[in-house]
Simulated scan of single mutants.
Amino acid sequence: MTPNPVTVDPQATLKEVATLMLEQDIGAVLVMEGDRPTGIITDRDIVIRAVAYGHDSGTAVTDYTTGDVFTMDADTSVEDAADEMGRQQLRRLPVTENGRVVGIVSIGDLAVRASGNADEQALQGVSVPSDNHNS
């Protein structure tokens, strides 16, 4: 898990988020309303959903986020998290503790830090085509 994920409020612009991604060397930012995650936006979302259509970089990030953020509790096992990432087709999974976001797990984290085949479990589900476009 990467602790303390980078977050923005819903009024942040695409340019602000892209700048954060550049400065922090990250590919995803959580959109938060208070302590509640309301969306996640990735570098790919910015390119595919906004730039490719010529949309203005001053546009609010919420127009391009993936909503309905699925989270898991911090004491969830790596294997269970990987299974759920596969089922939900998620490449990134915010981690909560007492209802507050404390980190984020990516498939890359599973590949680098997990023992066994947790990354393969998650990737198998994510690689299955679906209508769900979570990042």
Rank of each mutant, 00 (worst) to 15 (best):
G86L: 07
P94L: 05
A12C: 08
L93R: 02
N4W: 01
N132E: 06
E79R: 09
G54A: 07
V78S: 03
I26C: 03
E23W: 03
S77L: 08
V29D: 02
G103P: 00
R87C: 00
I41R: 06
A74M: 07
V17K: 01
V47N: 11
V102W: 00
T42V: 04
E120W: 09
A52M: 05
A118H: 11
Y53F: 12
A12L: 10
I107C: 04
A122Y: 04
E97P: 00
D43Y: 01
D68V: 07
D56K: 01
P5M: 11
D68K: 14
H55I: 13
E79K: 07
V29A: 06
V101G: 01
Q121F: 05
D25L: 02
V95I: 15
D109P: 10
D80W: 00
R44Y: 01
R36H: 12
M1A: 14
G116D: 13
R87N: 05
I41P: 09
H133D: 11
V47Y: 09
V31R: 06
T7Q: 15
M1G: 15
G108E: 11
N117M: 14
I104C: 00
G39L: 10
G125S: 07
V69W: 12
V17E: 02
A18Y: 00
P94R: 08
D109N: 09
L30T: 07
R44P: 08
N98L: 08
T38C: 13
E120A: 14
D73T: 14
D131F: 04
G125Y: 08
T96R: 12
P37Q: 10
D45W: 04
D131G: 12
Q89I: 04
V78I: 13
V51S: 13
A118D: 15
L14R: 01
S115G: 15
A28Y: 06
